[in-house]
Write a protein that binds this DNA or RNA. Sequence first.
DNA 1: CTACTTGCAAAGATTTTGCACCTCA
DNA 2: TGAGGTGCAAAATCTTTGCAAGTAG
Lengths: 131, 131
Amino acid sequence: MTMVRNTRQRQAVLQALRTTRTHPDAAWIHQEVRRELPSLSLGTVYRTLDALVRDGVAVTIERAGQATRYDFRRDDHHHHAVCRTCGAIFDIEVQELPNLPRTLLPGGFQVSDVRLEVHGVCVACQNKPNH
Amino acid sequence: MTMVRNTRQRQAVLQALRTTRTHPDAAWIHQEVRRELPSLSLGTVYRTLDALVRDGVAVTIERAGQATRYDFRRDDHHHHAVCRTCGAIFDIEVQELPNLPRTLLPGGFQVSDVRLEVHGVCVACQNKPNH
DNA sequence: CTACTTGCAAAGATTTTGCACCTCA
DNA sequence: TGAGGTGCAAAATCTTTGCAAGTAG
């Protein structure tokens, strides 16, 4: 039986993720946790974050060619708006989703995460020169 | 004023995307279109797909470390269920979304795409040995 | 003890980009 | 003709992985 250990590295990564609202990526978390645990490797950060996602403790916002952003999963029903120009991520509250898709899913599909992502361009980027 | 040209390459990429329901990635489209246009480069496929996405003609399903999958945007309101084990993508019909988020978005956010993504494990993968 | 975890570095994979050469309009 | 587009190959990123050494339980 496989056993999950509670290492210092995992505690620290979880702690870092939990105490920020900035939807950080792996590199940011790596830098952050390194202030306390200088030997922490980026590989371990990735492995830990993967585990957190598998366990439903964290969710991801993924964009091709961009670093995956991680978000600690809180009990609120929030989703994300993503600026496709600068990559900024905004939290948006959406209560109505939960019961929508179930009946329409392919038979037997085991749901672990329902994401609503609004993609577009944020105000700041609309006001930039070449938009 | 910038001018968009209607090249053979772009026609072929759009055609390939339009006539499949398999949510292909850039490499698949590249291979496919090459049967007609052997000189087509993968770089051009990426550039063309990017343009289609920017114009709202195609949408993407993006996963970290996996090739981006592209979907021709039809008039129906369909979204996607994504198996996190094998990467299979299933279409799901969802009608109720459109009017949800507007008021909750960050001020002035210009929406180009609202995606509902259901992530989980498909039946086939649940029945695999080491699940 | 010993199975799991880490650090390190290299490998993998995807996507982007610079540049010289084409080509659509 | 000329602003865009293409092909090619290299570069840039991000993420995963193999392995020897460390460590939680």
